[in-house]
């Protein structure tokens, strides 16, 4: 089978704390017939500064990423719900009236969230007979849920893993408390929000919490870690990779 090149923008958070997640993303993309090319020189979508209200600074960083991505062709896969939302929904606003406005609109249209892309080729997952014994809950990334409406795709992908029971979470659509700078500005509230989420997870009997946003994963994983909670917290790509996709 010929594999099709696809641009991958791993995002800054993954660069900083998730090198194995980057590998998992590449593995799964490879397994469904893509050959991922990491976008060289792309750094960050600018979201941290954009959300804090610093548009000039956000634009400066986003411009670099935008131009590097503009040099490529075809879909751009991003393994982060909120970065996808930033690029797809807010770049146009950020570059409104700017010399890169047209480029921003063109690149925004090419941006795809990881599970969307894999979902379109999900039947190829079966060939790997993915298997992982766990009781999982899926936590929706707020921006992916509300700004992009990507709800079913990650859940469908989990459905391909044998041995994985996916239970609905009562608080599945409630924010984990990360919120970027919010988590540092108001750490006590942020942690209390994570605790509510983790309490719900515990009550649901879930031992593997899955999400599609490195921000949520970092928040919930770090809090579970600090509390000594044995809960595992993984990206959809990591679940698929652990289950044997691409092996």
């Amino acid at each position: 089978m010929m594999s099709e090149p696809i641009v991958c923008f791993p995002t800054c958070l993954v660069d900083l704390v998730g090198r194995r997640l980057a590998d998992d993303v590449n593995t799964v993309l490879g397994a469904v017939g893509f050959s991922p090319i990491v976008a060289s020189g792309a750094t960050c979508c600018g979201q941290p500064a954009f959300n804090a209200g610093h548009h000039a600074q956000a634009r400066r960083v986003a411009r670099r990423t935008l131009r590097r991505l503009g040099d490529t062709e075809g879909p751009i896969v991003v393994p982060s719900g909120s970065c996808t939302a930033m690029m797809r929904r807010h770049w146009v606003e950020l570059f409104h009236g700017d010399r890169d406005e047209i480029l921003a609109a063109a690149v925004a249209k090419r941006v795809r969230e990881f599970s969307e892309v894999v979902d379109e080729r999900r039947r190829r997952l079966s060939a790997f007979e993915p298997r992982l014994n766990a009781v999982a809950g899926y936590h929706d990334s707020c921006h992916m849920l509300r700004e992009l409406g990507i709800i079913d795709q990650p859940r469908r992908l989990l459905g391909y893993v044998d041995g994985l029971e996916v239970r609905p979470l009562a608080s599945g659509e409630r924010c984990c408390g990360f919120g970027g700078a919010f988590s540092l500005r108001y750490p006590e509230v942020s942690v209390a929000m994570a605790d509510d989420k983790l309490a719900d997870v515990r009550e649901s009997g879930v031992d593997l919490l899955v999400s599609s946003d490195p921000g949520c994963l970092m928040q919930l994983g770090s809090r579970a870690d600090r509390r000594g909670d044995p809960l595992r917290v993984l990206h959809v790509a990591s679940v698929l990779a652990e289950a044997g996709v691409g092996r």
């Binding site: 958070l13 997640l21 590998d23 994963l217 809090r223 600090r226």
Partner: peptide, 20 residues
């Protein structure tokens, strides 16, 4: 350091095992 301290007050450090 203000950033790390505020994060680490109630949370472990991210990135253990190469995953966020």
């Amino acid at each position: 350091g203000p950033v790390l301290a505020r994060w680490a007050a109630g949370r472990g450090l991210p990135g253990r095992g190469g995953r966020p």
